[in-house]
């Protein structure tokens, strides 16, 4: 049958759901081994974080899309968590190969890392369902017969950053590694993440209060203390 925007969206959703094991609500054995190899086991903090953010996400999704959609928000979150675990495992495998270490205690106990990774996974899920597609980005379905209408509301990026209380600059850090770690992401989703990346780089990271200003200041102060090379004669 000919490819229509709706069919394309349905295929993307099917692919996303198919790629994520239904048993993936818990960390896989491999991932659990990475956690156990840490100096400080991050498991309990991670589960607690997921519990809290799951409640916040479902509530905010319901507020944005419609009161009957809290359940839908919970379903999106569950898919997001599966993707979060899948990508985290791929990232750690690649880091193990690159650095020849198995103890990622510092990274895995970094709350910002987890929140960024989860936010990216949720953004991918919502974009797949057409709920976070930019107006120029093609299809924008997602409502269907559920009585929820995300097209009428604004769950577009950077909505997710506000929900999980994450700085755009920290979200930016995870995008490239996320795309590298999941080669099954569709072309449309990669394009969507690239648009998010550009929005951060061009606008959001420069808003008042951004951590970027403090980092630039530190970089400048550090740089000024360095020895300046004398010009060649």
């Amino acid at each position: 049958p000919p490819q229509t925007p709706i069919r394309a969206a349905m295929n993307s959703i099917q692919q996303l759901r198919g790629d994520l094991p239904s048993s993936g609500d818990q960390p896989s054995t491999n991932l659990a081994t990475y956690f156990k190899n840490c100096t400080v086991d991050p498991t309990q903090d991670m589960l607690k974080r997921l519990e809290t953010l799951g409640q916040v996400f479902s509530q905010r999704f319901g507020q944005a899309v419609g009161p009957r959609c809290v359940v839908l928000g919970r379903q999106r979150f569950t898919l997001g968590v599966r993707l979060y675990y899948k990508v985290m495992e791929a990232m750690l495998k690649s880091e193990e190969k690159r650095l020849s270490v198995q103890n990622f205690s510092k990274l895995l106990n970094d709350s910002t890392f987890h929140t960024s990774l989860l936010a990216c996974a949720l953004e991918v899920v919502m974009a797949t369902y057409g709920e976070s597609s930019f107006k120029t980005g093609g299809y924008n379905c997602g409502g269907g017969s559920s009585g929820c209408d995300p097209a009428e509301t604004n769950v577009c990026f950077p909505w997710i950053l506000d929900v999980v209380n994450l700085a755009a600059f920290d979200f930016y850090k995870v995008i490239e590694s996320f795309i590298k770690a999941d080669p099954t992401l569709s072309k449309d989703i990669v394009k969507h993440l690239e648009t998010c990346e550009n929005l951060i780089m061009e606008r959001i990271a420069w808003r008042t209060g951004s951590v970027l200003f403090e980092l630039l200041k530190q970089e400048h102060e550090g740089g000024a203390a360095e020895q300046i090379e004398t010009p060649a004669s």
């Binding site: 990274l107 970094d110 850090k173 490239e176 590694s177």
Partner: peptide, 21 residues
């Protein structure tokens, strides 16, 4: 299969980006 431009060097992984190396 997509046009994303990967800008990170091989020595830059997620650990470095979160200052955890």
């Amino acid at each position: 299969s997509h046009d994303y431009h990967f800008g990170l060097e091989d020595h830059e992984g997620i650990s470095e980006l979160f200052d955890c190396d």
